[in-house]
Design a protein around this nucleic acid. Structure first.
Lengths: 343, 343
DNA sequence: TTGTAAGCGTTATCAC
DNA sequence: GTGATAACGCTTACAA
């Protein structure tokens, strides 16, 4: 079958462990031996079996990032930053995508065991982690963009987040202060889970409440399907417009949805912001390159990524866990306008 | 340390192999035994070690997709389709991202060995595969969106592609037939490699040639940086506009670049398509949701994915390799206009 | 400097 | 139905 370390040993006329030593750089071997071994390796196109390796190895200097839906453009900057910072510290990074709901911790445990990880970062998804989860993991764990329930002992994990509720309060309040009263809301209700989106929705409701504007379910679209974010935003916005002729603004709980919503508005022959103001959330590139550029609540993605990796390495060195809440920035790019200026 | 199959065997009072059998569903075990084993598994939170598993296992019913830069939105539809089709056939799918240049085949070999794959799909990247590569792999291999050099024996691999040169000829020719003569070109020159982008560039040049329009290097922007596609398109377009006041159209060799280019145009106070016509390539969602929606050469992503997976399973059943070239569709959405209509 | 041999945790092949 | 036991390919003491 496949060529193994034995074949290399045989061909180069040395012992198995010598081959292993040469390949791993550990221990010493005479230059001549090295030559012979390497020659055999190339001749037979030998590739070491990682399973056999990991089975024995203890320390791997590897950490992992588990991303819930890696295709989310918001995560890309973060991942990139984490990759760089990890390399810089001389560690390897294992990047893994997760789709399955609620299974992320199982996959995390699996990964920790398989790869002998010394730490792990979990990003995306919901807030459904339990104390057991962290205990089972066995290695330091940092949650990024999500956290665990307040009941969970905060010494078991670190977290780097924003205050989703407060930030979307900020977005909604901004529109209200601009004079808007009929404000649509588009968000992704993912099952009954507590997610960043549901928190943002709470912020939307609180902003209405505190400003004395009645909450109107007709202004909310959150029917969850498996469509893409763009398509989702587009369809939800179409619905909202059909149901609410008096709507003057919309807050979308993700920029991709905001883009879809914007397209829906423009395709109806309406203008942004003159007819309807639009604000998104996250701060991804598309919102910036869209025309018109869309206002958004921009998360400090790079800083968050840096903090996450810092927190992880701190934990790996035995330091305490940390829980950072960053502040997001309301970027005004012109897709929202005062109601008095509406035509 | 970690809890192993032995612990489960001990706790549940059965033999190791019985535990293995219960967990794998293979072989038989009495309901009572099953109960006991499962109870122990849950109590100790046992997770089987994949390395040890893969070391022994022969048939895994698993195939893999190696994607060169998984963040490329064009690949996402394809990956999704491949995932579904794979599950449908009762196989597992291993999705893996590759960044390293030219190392994709090494990673592929590694993956094949580690996971005992029975087949692999490679998407993205360049055309640099050799005969040796496929021979070393040891399992059926399908190239998706790229192919190997013509010198490589076509019985060694399957491929599903479009004719990048011809398709971008189509795009450029379309603009020329609309009356454009000063047509900008934005593409990503990735080292000296032969990539879809370089082929598309060839198509651009041939269209000019066959229509008797002189090729002007000033109209080409391909300075390769590590920027994102949007940023890249934006900056390249800024350059082009600065250098060519008489440019009336631009062809971008990827939709993300086209979006960046469009933003650059609009941010200069120019209009699309009245002042400058824009056409992209690939057919991703953002181009559709952009405002104005962008014309593009749309690749039949789903069909291509289906063909790739079909080809792979065919090979796995001992059938011959296949080499399919799909035709892309020129989508006219209004971002290109006849020159006579230019204001 | 090099080789021998004992595991790593699992599965597969047998006997029972 | 179930339980020993021999691999799987490698790393790592330890011995030479």
């Amino acid at each position: 079958m496949s060529v193994t370390i034995k074949d290399i040993a045989k061909l180069s006329g040395v012992g198995i462990s010598t081959v292993s030593r040469v390949l791993n750089g550990s221990g010493f071997a005479s230059p001549v031996t090295k030559q012979k071994v390497m020659a055999a390796v190339h001749e037979l196109n030998y590739i070491p079996n990682n399973n056999a390796r990991n089975l024995k190895r203890t320390q791997t200097k590897t950490i992992a990032v588990l991303v819930k839906s890696i295709t989310n453009p918001f995560f890309q900057k973060m991942i990139h930053t984490i990759e760089q910072k990890t390399m810089l510290r001389g560690y390897c990074l294992e990047l893994r995508n997760v789709n399955s709901n609620g299974q992320e911790m199982l996959i995390a445990q699996q990964e920790v065991m398989d790869k002998n990880l010394c730490g792990i970062i979990l990003m995306g998804g919901g807030f459904e982690y339990t104390e057991e989860d962290f205990k089972h993991l066995g290695v330091p764990c940092v949650l990024l963009t999500v956290s665990a329930d307040d009941k969970v002992n905060k010494d078991l994990y670190s977290s780097v987040i924003i205050d989703d509720e407060a930030e979307n309060f900020k977005a909604t309040d901004y529109l209200i202060k601009l004079g808007h009263k009929r404000i649509g809301c588009i968000y992704n209700a993912y099952g009954q889970l507590k997610t960043p989106n549901t928190l943002r929705f709470e912020g939307y409701k609180r902003a209405l409440l505190e400003n004395g504007i009645p909450f109107d379910p007709l202004l909310v679209s959150s029917f969850n399907t498996s469509q893409s974010g763009y398509e989702f935003g587009f369809n939800m916005m179409k619905n909202l417009m059909m149901r609410n002729k008096d709507m003057t603004a919309v807050v979308a709980m993700a920029d991709i949805m905001a883009v879809g919503a914007a397209k829906a508005i423009l395709s109806e022959g309406l203008r942004i912001p003159e007819d309807i103001s639009v604000i998104g959330f996250d701060g991804i590139e598309v919102a910036e390159y869209y025309s018109p550029a869309l206002d958004t609540i921009s998360q400090p993605a790079e800083q968050m990524a840096v903090s996450a990796i810092d927190a992880l390495f701190a934990m790996m060195q035995g330091e305490k866990t940390s829980h950072i809440v960053y502040e997001a920035v309301l970027l005004k790019r012109g897709s929202c306008i005062g109601l008095t200026n509406h035509s």
